[in-house]
Design a protein around this nucleic acid. Structure first.
Lengths: 232, 232
DNA sequence: AATTTATGACTGACCAGTCAGTCATAAAGG
DNA sequence: CCTTTATGACTGACTGGTCAGTCATAAATT
C-alpha cells in the first residue's frame, strides 16, 4: 500500500549503495574506467542498450524506466542526467543507431558495377548490417512507433531514408540506362528494399511458424528483376 | 488533485443520463432500431469502430477506453458488456476486420489466368480492399502491436496469412510452369506482397514528405517480375 | 414487477519524473 | 606526499497524475 503521510522520512540504513551499481558496471564487461568522461560515455551507452531491449520487447508506452534503469545497472534518476525524458531517450536511441548507416549505403550508390554484382553486395550489406544486428530491432521500433513521433519520422526521412532512396535511385537509373533492368523500376527504389522490410516484420511475428531465409529471398528477388539479356 | 478519502460518495443528481447516449447513437447515422439483437450488434460495431480509431492513432497501450467509449457514444462500463477487457477488444477488432478477406483471396488463387492478367486483379484487390480501406489501419496495428500478442499473431498466421501464402504460392507455381516467371519466385510468395506492405508503412510514416503511388508501384513490380517472352 | 441493459463515479495499481541527500573522486592547501 | 575541502555524479523514496476495470444504481424493456 502507498504511504499516506506527507512527511519526508529521514534517510536511514543505506546499506552498501554503490556496491550494486559498480558490480553491474563490471558485469557489463567493461573494466570500470576511472576517467569521468569515459565512465560517463559508458553509462550513456549502457542506458541506451537497456532502453533498446525494453522498448523492443514492451513497446514505447509499456516500457518502464525502472526496468531500463535496473537493466543498465543504474538508478532511475541517473537516466535523467543523460536524457531529458522518456521520449527523448527513445529518439536518441533511434538516431544513434541508424545515422551511421547512411554513409555506408551512400558509398555503395556511387560504385558503377553491373547490378548483378551490386545485388549481392546490397543483400549482404542489409543482412549483415541490419538483419543480423540489433539495428533490426531499431527498424522495427521505427515502424511500430514512428507514427506517434512525427518529429522523429521527419528526422528519419530527411537524414536517412531520402538519402538512401536517392542513392538507390541513381544506381537503378544507371542500371536501366545499361538495359539491365526495366526503366519503370528506377522510379520506385522502394521496391528493392521491400522484401528486406517484409523480412524484418515477418521475423518478428511469424518466424516461429514459418522461417524465412532473407538472403535467399532477396537474392531471388533481385535476380528476377534483372532483364534477361536475350533468352539463350 | 487526487481524492484522498477512501469513502464512497453517495450517488446524487444524475441529470438526464440517457440523453447524450441516444443522441450520439442517432448522430451515428443509424436509425435507432428497436430490435434487441440489432441494437446490440450496432453497439458492438460502434465500439469496434471507435476502438479502431483510438488504437490506430495512439497505439494499444496509450489508447484510453474512456475515449473509445466517448467516441462510440457509450459509457465505459458498456464496453465491458461486449468485451472481456481491453486486450480482448483489440484482438476481436483484428479478427473481425481481417477474417472476411481470406475467402476473397483464396478464390483468386483458384483462377487459372495468365499472370499478366491476374497481376492487375491482385493489385486492384489489394488497393480497394485494404489500402483504401480501414483495413489498412488494421494491418498497421497487426504490424505494430502483433509482437506483444503472440496468440493474436498465431491466429493471424493460421487463419489468414498461411492461407494467403498457400494460395499465392499455388498461383505462382502454375505461372512458373507456364514459363511466365522464374521458378525461384514461386518459393517466396511474400515477394508479391512486399511492396504493398511497404506502401502501408510508408503511407503512415512518410506520405507527407514524399507521396507514393501504390498502384503504379505494385504494377511496375509485377510487370518487371514477368519473364519477357523472348525480346521482340 | 421482474429482468435485462446501461451508466459513470470510484478504486487500486501503476509509473514518469523530482529532489534531498550521499559519497567517490578531484582540486586545493599544507 | 598527505590531509582537507569542494564538486557533481548518482541514488531511490516520494509525488502527482493516469487509467483499466468494478459495481451500485438507474433506465429500458418485457
Amino acid at each position: 500500500m502507498r504511504r499516506a503521510t506527507g512527511l519526508r522520512k529521514p534517510r536511514a540504513n543505506r546499506v552498501s549503495r554503490r556496491k550494486r551499481a559498480s558490480e553491474a558496471a563490471r558485469a557489463g564487461g567493461k573494466s570500470l574506467s576511472t576517467t569521468r568522461k569515459t565512465r560517463s560515455a559508458e553509462r550513456r551507452d549502457a542506458i541506451l542498450a537497456a532502453a533498446l531491449d525494453e522498448f523492443s520487447t514492451r513497446g514505447f508506452e509499456a516500457a518502464r524506466l525502472d526496468d531500463v534503469a535496473r537493466r543498465a545497472g543504474v538508478a532511475k534518476g541517473t537516466i535523467y542526467l543523460y536524457f531529458r525524458d522518456k521520449e527523448s531517450l527513445f529518439q536518441e536511441l533511434i538516431r544513434t543507431m541508424l545515422t551511421p548507416l547512411v554513409g555506408t549505403i551512400e558509398a555503395m550508390g556511387q560504385t558503377d558495377l553491373p547490378l548483378a554484382v551490386l545485388g549481392d553486395r546490397i543483400v549482404e550489406l542489409f543482412v549483415s548490417q541490419i538483419y543480423e544486428t540489433r539495428r533490426k530491432d531499431v527498424v522495427r521500433l521505427m515502424i511500430s512507433e514512428g507514427r506517434r513521433f512525427p518529429k522523429l519520422a521527419e528526422f528519419y526521412y530527411r537524414e536517412v531514408l531520402s538519402r538512401i532512396v536517392a542513392a538507390v535511385r541513381a544506381l537503378l537509373r544507371r542500371a536501366a540506362a545499361r538495359g539491365e533492368i526495366a526503366e519503370s523500376l528506377a522510379e520506385f527504389p522502394q521496391i528493392i528494399a521491400a522484401p528486406g522490410l517484409l523480412a524484418v516484420i515477418w521475423n518478428g511475428l511469424f518466424e516461429r511458424f514459418e522461417p524465412l531465409d532473407v538472403r535467399r529471398m532477396m537474392k531471388a528477388h533481385l535476380d528476377t528483376l534483372l532483364t534477361p539479356r536475350r533468352a539463350p
